[in-house]
């Protein structure tokens, strides 16, 4: 692990009487692809949403580049938000905008570049995520599931972020597309030097793509580390996840 870029410590999250996290701590190193794993309802997506400030934890600390983001002022948060890109689970594309407009939206809002240059940048991103040239003029409702994910990724990459958050990037894709998407994520990390945090269920992605990951369960982190580190963990859920039938068949 290189120098740490994100550090979550002693995070507690509560929705009413329902405790989701009780002292969750993880560290994410610069340049790595970090996975967040766990059963349904273990608070994976909640943890991701807290990191991108869509939800506020009860207590604990989340720091990016050594600064606690929970106590930052709004000016520095605006800056911070331009340094990360987020791919939501369902894509969350703006349905009334075309693919090109979706990718261009931050570029238009945060810079004064001429439209032609923005168009060139967007076309470059479209090519980069492997979308066909004509995709730019389509509307989200005209895209297939795999294309939606790619557009969402291109949009997340629009501002050249240092950090990329992916919420189940391969869910809903067929195994072939999922493999291609994993490869794309790896390529982008190598090309752009990104740090990537992804929530995933996909064993295949964990084996091929993710460098380190944590497993959430029982409101805590039950395992953290590389695949080898986690495999020797005796926790029953971890064992079940990696040795269950579903895990085997995809090998």
């Amino acid at each position: 692990m290189n120098s740490e870029i994100i550090k979550v410590s002693n995070l507690v999250t509560q929705f009413g009487p329902n405790k989701i996290h009780d002292g969750v701590s993880i560290t994410i190193g610069s340049g790595e692809i970090y996975g967040i794993l766990g059963g349904s309802g273990s608070g994976k997506s909640t943890l991701l949403k807290e990191m991108i400030l869509l939800l506020r934890p009860e207590s604990g600390e989340i720091s990016f580049f050594g600064q606690n983001i929970l106590t930052m002022n709004s000016a520095s948060l605006t800056k911070l938000r331009q340094q990360w890109g987020v791919l939501f689970q369902g894509g969350a594309l703006y349905t009334s905008l075309t693919v090109t407009e979706n990718i261009a939206v931050q570029l238009k809002e945060y810079s004064d570049l001429p439209a032609a240059l923005i168009y060139d940048i967007v076309q470059m991103k479209i090519n980069m995520v492997g979308l066909p040239q004509h995709a730019g003029s389509l509307y989200p409702s005209e895209l297939s599931g795999g294309m939606v994910k790619r557009v969402a990724l291109a949009r997340a990459l629009a501002m050249d972020p240092v950090l990329l958050f992916l919420d189940e990037p391969t869910s809903g894709l067929d195994p072939v597309s999922a493999n291609m998407f994993d490869q794309l994520i790896l390529d982008l990390r190598d090309m752009l030097g990104l740090t990537i945090v992804m929530v995933t269920h996909d064993l295949e992605s964990i084996k091929t793509t993710v460098d380190r990951f944590c497993v959430l369960g029982e409101k805590k982190v039950i395992a953290e580390g590389s695949l080898e580190d986690v495999l020797i963990n005796p926790h029953p859920w971890v064992k079940q996840f990696f040795t269950g039938k579903r895990g085997q068949t995809r090998n």
Binding site: Q82, L107, Y110, S111, D112, L113, P114, L117, I121, M159, D160
Partner: peptide
Amino acid sequence: WTVNQLDQAVECLQ
């Protein structure tokens, strides 16, 4: 030469 800082350079180059 990053996205937020480019506007002067764009005009100048054009």
